[in-house]
């Protein structure tokens, strides 16, 4: 049911709709900032409560014992019930996890319940072990074992396929990335030579799915690659195709792949739209209603398609 992709760090979930989708698993370095943030938030809460109680104690007629009682109780609750409370009520997220956009879920993809939140948070101390004493850093410091080394959790995460710490193992949970992904930005094929070249690709040429996938991957990433490197990468795929299509040898391999991409994914009608609409502003949601089929698909880089200087002469 929960197949594990051995190469990518993703967990496959099967939903009640009988759909499989993947979660990206958050590793230790994704989780550490959340831990530190939570620690900082807890400390700030504690300081705030302390100051508040002192002010209340100074102004109102409340016995000082009560003030200390409340401070002690608050620090105890923050120590042991902070994560438990938030993960139960905030759908598997603490404020730190919320800020770093990670989330705790069950290994079977369901949200965690109060029981799981309790177990994984009570076991946090074991994951922090072994603790290092303050004395290691200053000889006159009190021998308090308060500095966590996280060794247990790191070893445990290394040995499990879902980066689970001990608490996660005991509760049957895992931490996944829950960030909004970028809406596929648009590859803008502004260079008309792409179109003219694509028209010369033999009409009976059928692209296999793997070839289409490879070309799409290339088109998505080429914006981040230097021109020389583009030629080098593209030529592996382009040179045999140039021969097959009887194109001139000095046709830019990059341009050929763009033309194939255009042919595979962008319709002719769509391309004509490009000229009519100005490229959409890069808004937060990425797409506006103006983004018609003209601008298609998937590129992280907005400045993606400056094509290299033309090497293409008229195709043979």
């Amino acid at each position: 049911m929960n197949a594990q992709n051995a190469i990518d760090l993703t967990a496959v979930i099967t939903t009640p709709e009988n759909i499989q989708f993947e979660y990206r698993i958050a590793g230790p370095f994704r989780r550490l900032p959340a831990l530190l943030l939570d620690f900082a938030i807890r400390m700030m809460c504690l300081v705030a409560i302390f100051i508040l109680m002192m002010v209340v104690g100074a102004t109102a007629a409340i016995p000082s014992g009560m003030i200390f009682f409340l401070i002690l109780l608050a620090s105890f609750a923050l120590d042991w019930f902070y994560g438990l409370f938030f993960e139960t009520y905030w759908n598997g997220q603490t404020p730190g996890k919320w800020l770093t956009m990670i989330q705790v879920i069950s290994v079977d993809g369901r949200p965690i319940n109060a029981y799981q939140a309790t177990v994984r948070n009570f076991l946090r101390l074991a994951d922090f072990a072994p603790m290092v004493s303050l004395e290691m850093f200053a000889a006159d410091a009190p021998p308090a074992y308060v500095i966590p080394t996280f060794l247990v959790s790191l070893i445990c995460m290394t040995l499990t396929s879902r980066f689970q710490r001990l608490g996660d193992l005991a509760a049957g949970t895992m931490v996944v990335v829950n960030e909004r992904s970028w809406v596929p930005a648009n590859v803008k094929l502004e260079d008309t030579r792409v179109v003219s070249l694509s028209e010369h690709i033999p009409a009976n040429f059928r692209m296999s799915p793997t070839l289409a996938k490879a070309i799409a991957l290339y088109a998505e990433r080429r914006g981040r690659i230097s021109i020389g490197r583009r030629t080098e990468l593209a030529s592996h795929l382009a040179n045999p195709l140039l021969k097959q299509f009887n194109f001139r040898d000095d046709t830019s391999p990059d341009l050929l792949l763009c033309a194939l991409y255009y042919r595979a994914f962008v319709s002719k009608e769509a391309f004509s739209e490009v000229k009519r609409f100005a490229p959409p502003p890069a808004t937060d949601t990425g797409l506006t209603s103006k983004d018609t089929d003209a601008t298609l698909l998937v590129n992280l880089m907005p400045d993606s398609l400056e094509l290299p200087p033309p090497i293409l002469k008229a195709p043979l």
């Binding site: 979930i13 939903t15 759909i19 989708f21 979660y23 949200p111 960030e179 596929p184 998505e220 998937v298």
Partner: peptide
């Protein structure tokens, strides 16, 4: 295209949770 698939995976994941 793969990037769209990736996008869909994340979208479905978010909606699921």
């Amino acid at each position: 295209p793969p990037a769209t698939v990736e996008y869909l995976h994340r979208l479905v994941g978010r909606a699921h949770s």
